[in-house]
Design a protein around this nucleic acid. Structure first.
Lengths: 225, 225
DNA sequence: CTCCGTTTTGTCAGTCAATGACATAAACGC
DNA sequence: GCGTTTATGTCATTGACTGACAAAACGGAG
């Protein structure tokens, strides 16, 4: 009852959703997001306006759907990194799946138009940022968990020592900084092209370089005055 | 004709705006943002709904108005920092005005309710993030300009050398990381209380510590594999 | 004070996104 | 075929927002 039959309905549902997205994309690209009404999109696939809202909770959701998956996969990726790896490296590695996906999309040319629509529409940019912030919170929890661990089990601290233990409460800030790099990297790729990996490495490297130059004592915070 | 008279009108206008904000705040706190209609706010000060929109372009703008000022003041603050100061320190210093303002507000107890309203309303959080991103872009331009300068004029590089020159194109990422710290610090203060300065120092110190631990070569980016 | 031009405001009508209620048509299990 | 979900259409409504227009309120010139 909840295996094949459901799957069939869901498949159909996804088909219709994909159809709506395709129609909407064309309209958005040609007329802009705001100037396109839900009625037009619905008419484009031959359904009523009311039914549109049974497939997407909002016009915005058609463009920016599902970030729960992203939160889950990034959290899992980070959790899979070894606990003794430097945090900044772990975060960079957690983004690897996204990088691969982005490169694949770049070749296929898919979702290219949509990204531009998002970039150029204030309401969509806002929605995107809000969703990414929830993802950030989710990932930050994972990092906080890792930082809360008492200490690397056996006497380890192998290569590049984490000099300062890094309080768990600082996880949101660290993850936020990494996400900021990711966001910037996406912008760069959308605007100038190139690989996401390169853009990400450049961004995260720059932050590492800039931030570490602000440390006077090794592994102590900034001067107070 | 465009000196005192205009100022008088503008003063009156600001009075009415402040009045609207005060009434709206009460309603938002007691009923929530979404559940409060513009009509209620307008009625609260005895004006028509239409006139409300002559004072604020949107319900959201009543809560999140004017971030152009913030962009300008942060940009100016950053521009005023010495060019040979480590970038991360300059950014922290650029936030000093905000820190002072926040502490002052904390004592006065002003705008406390509003911040909570923003934190607890999705639409407002999104709008806030979008505005902050524009601020970030503005500040990043200033930093990019500073990084583009050929070199510290005379033979300087005084205290803690900026080992890697830091390409101007990485400015958005670095500023984004700093803003992320600011944002987290605000959240912490709103939630747990305490001084913004302490929260900011903790956040930025943590990022510096975490990111610098990810550098293997001095001042080179991350390993590629 | 009165008249005139500017500004502010209220009223009205309309658009668009989103939601609830209800009825009907289609699909599924038996 | 029949009853039960499930999908869809229709209708009505709310709430943010906008344009158009007319009625005040204001501020100065005579």
């Amino acid at each position: 009852m909840s295996e094949q039959a459901e799957t069939f309905r869901e498949r159909k549902r996804r088909m219709v959703q994909a159809d709506l997205v395709a129609v909407a994309k064309e309209l958005f690209v040609s007329q802009g997001y705001e100037a396109t009404t839900v009625e037009q999109i619905a008419a484009g696939v031959g359904m009523s306006e009311r039914t549109f809202f049974r497939y997407f909770p909002s016009k915005e959701a058609l463009v920016l759907g599902r970030y729960e998956d992203l939160a889950a996969s990034l959290s899992a990726a980070l959790a899979a990194r070894p606990a003794d790896e430097p945090v900044w490296v772990s975060l960079r590695r957690a983004f690897d799946d996204l990088v691969a996906e982005s490169d694949a999309e770049a070749e296929a040319g898919r979702t290219r138009g949509m990204r531009a629509v998002v970039e150029s529409t204030d309401a969509l940019r806002a929605g995107y940022l809000a969703r990414m912030e929830r993802v950030r919170e989710s990932v930050a929890e994972v990092l906080a968990g890792r930082l809360a661990e008492p200490a690397p089990a056996s006497g380890s601290t192998p290569a590049s020592a984490d000099a300062a233990p890094l309080a768990p409460s600082t996880a949101p800030a660290v993850v936020g900084a990494a996400f900021s790099c990711l966001s910037v990297a996406y912008s760069v790729v959308t605007r100038d092209g190139g690989s996401l990996a390169a853009a990400l490495d450049a961004a995260m490297g720059a932050v590492a370089s800039a931030a570490s130059a602000g440390i006077t004592d090794p592994a102590r915070t900034l001067p107070d005055a």
